[in-house]
Amino acid sequence: MKIPITVKPGTTARVKTGNWRELYVPEIDYEKCIGCSMCEKICPEGICFSTGEKNSKGKIFFEKDLDYCKGCGLCAEICPAKAIEMKREEK
């Protein structure tokens, strides 16, 4: 039996860790977002990202991917504009 010792890069992406969230889910207010990218830097999953679109104040706003979000709340904690709120998630 032959077992390969190398695997394809980034393959964990097929594991959707979104079902790890217990109670809270982040909600981003696009209008309050100033596009500083701190959420992108702190997110342990690396799934806060720039949408490339601008809000009414001309700032590029960020979004999160709930397929992977584990609901830790660090994005809401570090956001200097208080644009992210942890809301109770109804399942």
Binding site: T12, R14, F49, K64, G73, L74
Partner: peptide, 25 residues
Amino acid sequence: MPQKSKYKAPLAHLVNPGHSACAGC
């Protein structure tokens, strides 16, 4: 369930999500 977003994460980082590190690690 929260509303489904029309944006998808580009997975542009060199470490992909889907790993099993604890929330807030």
